[in-house]
């Protein structure tokens, strides 16, 4: 069974379309969508509809912090830019779309795999996995062998041996990595809708349980079109320029 894992789509229709087109050539049996479908980008309604469609066809899905923020509306302590984005996004979603985001689970499991947006130790608190110690904390918090997380926009791979030794690795796109069964793995595919590692190409990953092979992919997409929509919508300009730079 071949799983495609997409996360942090961030209302970026151009990126999502390109990733799904690439995945269509990868003999994917099932999709997993790890949250943050909205926020930053100019196409929240289209992305939520697409996600809803995929879930109806069997895709696994979890909620991200941006999804929750849009469901709850801006909080008093939010700074002006995020507040504007949340309000703008809410105004573009129908009640049923918001309802869909509201009912998403925080975690899902499939055999020995855990899917969660931020981390396994406290999924609702949205703390980040920035370094090896955070990854170890997350892997200790689950009995599942493989964890897929979003939240962090840079692709990364962590592993933990039964002896307690952990390692991290920045993956190369297109290279299958066997997630050997003897250790735990924490996979961060990287953001599809807003990559931040200096490469503007959209991120996603494919996991094939036949050989436990994980492959990270980068898919170039029309960042100018996505950025132009953000500018046209009067969303913060920085959200457009960072797509072109991947930062």
């Amino acid at each position: 069974m071949r799983l495609a894992i997409l996360t942090d789509l961030h209302a970026n229709r151009e990126a999502v379309e390109s990733v799904l087109e690439h995945a269509a050539g990868q003999r994917i049996d099932r999709y997993a969508l790890l949250g943050d479908f909205v926020g930053y980008g100019a196409d929240p309604a289209w992305v939520v509809d697409r996600v809803r469609e995929m879930v109806a066809q069997g895709a696994l899905v979890v909620q991200g912090n941006h999804d929750l923020a849009v469901v709850q509306g801006p909080s008093p302590q939010m700074r002006p830019d995020p507040r504007y984005v949340v309000e703008w996004t809410r105004a573009r979603l129908s009640p049923s779309q918001i309802d869909f985001l509201a009912t998403l689970p925080l975690t899902q499991e499939l055999g020995d795999i855990l899917f969660v947006h931020a981390n396994a130790w406290a999924p609702a608190e949205w703390e980040y996995i920035h370094a090896r110690a955070d990854a170890v904390r997350s892997m200790h918090a689950t009995l599942r062998r493989v964890t897929f997380c979003g939240h962090m926009h840079e692709p990364q791979l962590y592993h933990l041996a039964p002896t307690g030794k952990a390692g991290d690795f920045t993956p190369t796109p297109g290279m299958p990595i066997p997630l050997l069964p003897h250790r735990q793995w924490l996979v961060i595919p990287g953001s599809a809708g807003q990559p931040r590692d200096g490469d503007p190409a959209a991120c996603y990953a494919v996991f094939d349980d036949a050989g436990d092979d994980l492959t990270y992919w980068r898919v170039p997409y029309d960042t100018e079109a996505a950025g132009a929509k953000i500018r046209a919508a009067n969303l913060p300009q920085r959200l457009a320029s960072r797509l072109a730079d991947g930062e």
Partner: peptide, 14 residues
């Protein structure tokens, strides 16, 4: 949820 995955939790090697 039905699954094609065989559940293999982390166990020390025999």
């Amino acid at each position: 949820m039905e699954s094609d995955f065989e559940s293999t939790l982390i166990v020390p090697p025999e």
